[in-house]
Amino acid sequence: MSAKKVSIYTLNQLLHHGKQPAAGGLERYMRDIAVLMREMGYDVNFVQNGTHRWKRDYMGFTVYGVPMLEGNVSDIEAMDRVSHDRVLYGWVGQQETYKDTEGIVINHGIWWDDANYDLERLPWIIPNIVNGLDHCKVMVTVDTAFLNWCRSTIGNRIRGKLRYIPNYVDLNMFRPEEKTKETDFVTVLYPRRISPVRGIELAKRLSVRLLGKYAHVKFKFAVDHNHPQLWNEFVEWADAHPYRDRLDIGNYYFDDIPNAYREADIVLLPTIQSEGTSFSCLESMGCGKAIVTTAVGGMTDLILDGFNGRLVMPEEESLFEALCELIEDGELRRTFGHHAYMTAKAFSKERWEAQWAKWIAAVYG
């Protein structure tokens, strides 16, 4: 019997030109969904946004790039023309129409929770979510912030379709390990994209303040290279840093990011908006690190302030105070790190795969 065919719609599994993989949590998530489905016997391909029409191989999966409409909007009709009949929709915000009205659609967190969000677009949000619920078999949310928003805003339109499956960490890959070389320095790590919503500007300012206050602190940025212009601008900023000798910057992808966590003492995740159950947070927890993050989106599903990390408001002063506390208290760092690791066990990749496998089989047969 031939394998059942399913297309996965996503924004960018590969960068829009199709020449290299995109680095980010969403891309990792969709990759692992595809791998799981292949292991379950499905014939899976990706359909995504592109600068032009292209076809590539990625980890044994065919990926189709479809040119975007004006305003970098996904051309769903064109995507439908190259996809299989059965579709798994990678993000509800990408969709306006649904070819497969009996499929799964995913939401990765509230993305309109910023004070500067264009208010004219807010009336579009509720119809978009309702449209997704009306045209799917199951909608998966990765955090409870979105789940509770739906309950309070949409109410009975959910009709039992919404399911909470938080993100995950591979504890075989992300685990507590000794530093390769012990020093007297305390290293603060920012392992996120060069993106305003991920708090890159906050992290840059905090690096100057922390390195200026503490001579025994180092600061490391483990960031993406998705957008060369942003990377070049970031390098220029780093080269002009007043404490450049204690600042480290580098590009990391899926397989080598554990090396960055290993050398860190504190992980800073100063996200401002649009956050699910963050992979960076889960990976830091798996590695047993002391975490400072913000009470945004799905971060509140992962960090209990004072138990397995510091959860503060997305403000520079609050983050600075929390970082200073952990820099000055090694015992507290170790306590938070141990509790973070124990918490991470509840978010194992094996558990995530089991939850997803149940719904994939139920929906796609």
Score class of each variant (00 low, 15 high):
275 E>M: 13
119 L>I: 11
304 L>G: 05
315 E>P: 01
26 L>I: 12
119 L>M: 07
192 R>I: 05
138 V>M: 01
363 V>T: 15
35 V>Y: 11
293 T>R: 02
338 H>I: 11
93 G>K: 05
137 K>W: 04
343 T>H: 09
303 I>N: 02
220 K>Y: 04
73 V>W: 15
196 P>E: 13
135 H>V: 05
83 S>M: 02
188 V>N: 02
261 Y>S: 03
71 G>N: 08
240 A>I: 03
279 F>P: 00
110 I>C: 08
290 A>Y: 01
312 V>L: 04
289 K>C: 02
248 D>S: 11
133 L>W: 03
104 I>W: 05
182 E>H: 15
287 C>E: 06
139 M>P: 03
288 G>C: 07
218 K>C: 07
80 D>T: 08
236 E>I: 06
305 D>H: 13
255 D>G: 11
132 G>A: 15
325 E>I: 07
148 N>R: 12
4 K>L: 10
338 H>Q: 13
141 T>R: 00
222 A>F: 04
101 T>I: 15
327 I>T: 07
364 Y>A: 09
58 Y>W: 02
173 M>S: 04
354 A>L: 08
16 H>C: 06
151 R>S: 07
118 D>T: 12
135 H>E: 06
34 A>Q: 01
251 N>L: 07
49 N>E: 09
188 V>S: 02
151 R>N: 06
117 Y>L: 04
225 H>V: 13
214 Y>H: 06
319 L>F: 09
165 I>Q: 05
231 W>N: 00
313 M>E: 09
1 M>H: 09
215 A>Y: 03
69 L>Q: 14
164 Y>E: 11
236 E>M: 04
57 D>T: 04
339 H>N: 13
298 G>D: 11
101 T>Y: 09
31 R>T: 14
363 V>F: 05
354 A>Q: 14
81 R>C: 05
137 K>Q: 10
309 G>V: 05
32 D>G: 01
121 R>C: 03
112 W>H: 09
145 A>M: 15
222 A>E: 03
289 K>E: 07
236 E>S: 14
329 D>S: 03
301 D>C: 11
